[in-house]
Deep mutational scan, measured.
Amino acid sequence: DTINITLPDGKTLTLTVTPEFTVKELAEEIARRLGLSPEDIKDTHNGKTLDPSLTLAEYGITPGSTITLEIK
């Protein structure tokens, strides 16, 4: 299953994830792909900052969802 990550420059990154991924694991994968530190990444969905300890499923993030990435 894939989700879309909207980057600060407007580009989109597509990642393969499972509903059990935590937001922290997602940030780590994004950081790895972009050459950043996971601590520099802030993920938001529907205007809410995502708690790193919760899973994508707990936020109702499903395949095809879009998450907005902010760099701290």
Score class of each variant (00 low, 15 high):
62 T>C: 09
8 P>W: 10
16 T>V: 12
68 T>C: 11
44 T>Y: 08
33 R>Q: 13
58 E>H: 10
1 D>T: 14
43 D>M: 15
43 D>A: 15
67 I>E: 01
20 E>I: 09
66 T>W: 08
40 D>H: 11
3 I>R: 00
9 D>N: 12
59 Y>W: 08
6 T>L: 15
43 D>E: 15
10 G>L: 03
48 K>Y: 10
56 L>V: 03
38 P>G: 07
68 T>L: 12
26 L>K: 00
21 F>D: 04
24 K>M: 08
7 L>I: 05
18 T>C: 05
59 Y>N: 14
56 L>D: 00
49 T>R: 08
25 E>N: 09
37 S>L: 11
3 I>C: 02
2 T>L: 09
53 S>L: 10
67 I>R: 00
55 T>Q: 03
24 K>V: 04
7 L>C: 07
47 G>C: 13
38 P>Y: 14
10 G>F: 04
5 I>A: 02
29 E>P: 00
19 P>D: 07
5 I>D: 01
48 K>T: 15
68 T>V: 13
34 L>I: 06
17 V>P: 02
28 E>S: 06
1 D>S: 14
41 I>W: 08
51 D>M: 03
20 E>C: 08
46 N>Y: 10
24 K>T: 04
59 Y>R: 01
28 E>K: 05
23 V>F: 15
48 K>Q: 15
7 L>S: 04
46 N>Q: 05
15 L>K: 00
30 I>G: 00
33 R>I: 13
10 G>S: 03
1 D>C: 15
48 K>E: 15
72 K>D: 13
16 T>P: 11
68 T>S: 12
45 H>D: 11
58 E>R: 01
17 V>F: 11
28 E>H: 07
32 R>N: 10
14 T>Y: 08
44 T>H: 07
61 I>E: 00
31 A>S: 08
66 T>F: 07
67 I>W: 06
5 I>Q: 00
11 K>Q: 13
56 L>A: 01
48 K>S: 13
33 R>V: 12
36 L>V: 14
39 E>A: 14
72 K>W: 11
68 T>G: 07
58 E>P: 00
9 D>E: 05
41 I>L: 13
32 R>A: 10
66 T>Q: 06
45 H>A: 11
9 D>W: 12
18 T>H: 12
50 L>T: 04
43 D>T: 15
68 T>E: 11
